[in-house]
Design a protein around this nucleic acid. Structure first.
Lengths: 96, 96
DNA sequence: TGAATATATGAGCAGATATTCATATATTAG
DNA sequence: CTAATATATGAATATCTGCTCATATATTCA
């Protein structure tokens, strides 16, 4: 396992995506399918602005992807690596 | 997937363990087997104090475990869930 | 015992991060 | 067109984080 500096940073960034309780709640909701910003915000009791800010970061990290429809934007998990990672963490919590 | 507030925090804490490049380097080294604090520090070019601080957090999160032998303390990955999680992230980086 | 070595820890600081608030942009309805 | 709605974004702020430096503790060696 040879770890260059760049890869260490990339790995840290990946895990950072799930390293905050708000983002965890956002991702957990998206595990059930795509949702609008408003729906996410209401579902977890966060302001739409805060959710939008977090989604921006998640989008840039390619953790989620956005689909625009009319004036709404629907977000969903970008790829199954992410949901798999999330599920593994989830399982670990359940047993630990 | 029902996510209580407590579980969201626990999940975030778990991923936080790997959300920093220094910790990623520490974990990556420990993937090869147990190492002393000094060896870890030298291996990744960090001060022993900084490494010790990080190890403290990782210990509290049960990500690593410590074995004392004489005046040295050897650290290793606490359980295979962690190394599995790490490996998954690693794979994701390789292909992404 | 005293010196040297290995690790741990507390304080303090600099930089990062998450939120709020105000505002901007884009889309739809009337 | 104007008003309303959904989202995005910038600035400001409060909190959190990771490091350094100094110091403490524990263990071994002479």
């Amino acid at each position: 396992m040879k770890l260059t500096e760049l890869k260490a940073v990339k790995l840290a960034e990946l895990f950072s995506a799930l390293s905050d309780a708000s983002r965890v709640r956002i991702i957990a909701q998206l595990m059930g399918g795509e949702m609008s910003v408003r729906a996410i915000a209401q579902g977890i009791g966060m302001s739409e602005s805060a959710v939008s800010h977090q989604l921006r970061g998640l989008r840039q990290m390619q953790i989620v992807r956005a689909r625009k429809s009319g004036r709404q934007v629907f977000y969903s998990i970008a790829d199954e690596h992410v949901s798999h990672l999330f599920t593994m963490g989830w399982d670990h919590i359940q047993h630990g």
